[in-house]
């Protein structure tokens, strides 16, 4: 049944977009985190999406073939900004602290984009559900 597969496929997309929104929330929460070295400083996280197409990723005949999954998390490689603040308890021996590389505006845009994608997939499910109900109505006298 192809119509019922739509629920599985759109479901994987809802899942992936939810992970993306959670990542944005985590990035925003850590936007003002500071550290004493660039290695320890918070790096913005980005989910990496991958299509579920190969046999190894899905069980044969599974309802979500062709869906999407989050295959991993990538760190943003933008260099960290450092500021001179010797009074800060996190300051290194030279008096520098390192800020996270989270860009609030980028995160907001990303959040809007994932919210739109989420809505799109909800709409896909709604349409499929409606059509399924109408198909069921064929049996009515």
């Amino acid at each position: 049944m192809s119509i019922s597969n739509i629920f599985g496929i759109a479901g994987t997309a809802l899942n992936a977009q939810m992970v993306r929104m959670n990542t944005t929330a985590s990035n925003m929460a850590n936007a003002s985190t500071i550290a004493s070295s660039p290695e320890d400083a918070y790096k913005a996280k980005r989910p990496v999406f991958e299509a579920l197409l190969t046999e190894a990723q899905t069980n044969a005949g599974a309802a979500h073939v062709g869906g999407v999954k989050v295959s991993g998390m990538a760190d943003d490689t933008t260099p960290h900004r450092r500021i001179h603040d010797p009074g800060n308890p996190k300051a290194d021996e030279e008096g520098f602290i390192y800020l996270s590389n989270v860009e609030e505006v980028t995160e907001m845009v990303d959040m809007m984009s994932s919210a739109r994608s989420y809505q799109n997939n909800v709409e896909v499910i709604n349409t499929a559900r409606e059509l399924m109900m109408r198909t069921l109505d064929l049996t009515k006298v």
């Binding site: 597969n5 739509i6 496929i9 759109a10 299509a51 062709g66 994608s117 997939n121």
Partner: peptide, 9 residues
């Protein structure tokens, strides 16, 4: 539906 699900892949 597959295409829409993978619009960000």
């Amino acid at each position: 539906a597959r295409n829409i699900a993978n619009s960000d892949t």
